[in-house]
Design a protein around this nucleic acid. Sequence first.
DNA 1: TTAAACATACCGACTAGTTGGTTTGTTTAA
DNA 2: TTAAACAAACCAACTAGTCGGTATGTTTAA
Lengths: 206, 206
Amino acid sequence: MPRDGTITRTTIMDSAQSLILGQGFSATSVDKVIEQAGITKGAFFHHFKTKADLALALVERYANLDQAHLDMNLVRAEELARDPLQQMLIFIGLLKEEMAGLTEPFPGCLYASFCYEAQLFDDNTHTVIQNMMLEWRRRLSSKFVDIIDLYPPKLDIAPESLADMALVIYEGAFILSKTLKEPVTTAEQLGHYRNYVELLFETPAE
Amino acid sequence: MPRDGTITRTTIMDSAQSLILGQGFSATSVDKVIEQAGITKGAFFHHFKTKADLALALVERYANLDQAHLDMNLVRAEELARDPLQQMLIFIGLLKEEMAGLTEPFPGCLYASFCYEAQLFDDNTHTVIQNMMLEWRRRLSSKFVDIIDLYPPKLDIAPESLADMALVIYEGAFILSKTLKEPVTTAEQLGHYRNYVELLFETPAE
DNA sequence: TTAAACATACCGACTAGTTGGTTTGTTTAA
DNA sequence: TTAAACAAACCAACTAGTCGGTATGTTTAA
């Protein structure tokens, strides 16, 4: 077996990601990454053709984890209930519980980090992020379409924008949580999202 | 009095801010700023002792505008209604209408931009941002306390986290809007926030 | 079995250009 | 005349990326 470079590659990516979430991509120099990773420039540019290539690899890995995370929680919710509204409420509850136990703010989202340095990245990198945001929209709005069918909502709402709200809450809560150093914010805000869905579709007591 | 440098200073800050919202603070070199502003390095470092000094000046100006914006819309809402719930719904409606007419995504929020490059800035800069976030929380949660007094909410909620939701929606919606290049997102999401408040406190039909 | 040929992983000095910041001097208006 | 407002040349440190070389394996053919 050849020397396994996947460990080195993973170490580089882990180091880079934690640096990027703290100081942004631009300020995360290759020198800082290799120092953090404990390797050399030769090793870095063996694994990544350019620094932009690292950025792409990072968002691809992040999006893959995000996809798996989305799939897993949707499947779990669908296993725990048959009714689409119950599934959605359970799904949001699962997301909330993940964030509820944090003792320090979530380190942040790579999508948001790259969003405010967007002009530094190429189209491939942007597309990966856009597609993953659209995937959240597709998956959740499809569920909301089923819900609207069964439970006439109290207000006229578009399922896509209701689906978007999940990511909106995540991204916004991360920013407040990081800035104010309050770990509970994200779980609290996901709780409001769940409340909103509940109130929108609940059948009035008769 | 010698030449009036306030125009130059403003031009520098405007150029810097638009560059920062597109590519982040770190990638926004002083050279790029002075090129965009059409001035020289001498002028730049006459007005700002360091690049970090520019960052502080930018967030201070941004926070002052934010404060005025918050004040103005709260006053307008209080002029248009006496009931605190109606005031809050009008207030959110005013924010929504500001965003509803955009033909391209809002350029973004300086708080969020700095949040993901946080380690580059000093405590003064952070404090300005934190104080403005806490100001939003104070002002809106005070209103929500009044609302809760008058309209027993359907669910048990903390007024602070309900107040935080305004900024959360803003910051999150900006990120989706910028990434997906969809200008309507922010107004849509503020609409959901208004819906949520409405549903939480509405008096059930009898 | 063995050794030559090859492939991958990695090292670290080097380069051309950029970075924030300084220095020295000039222009402008009161 | 004076002091703020600006210009332009300059600097040391840092930037991403290159390149020749080495170390450690795998494959192939006799």
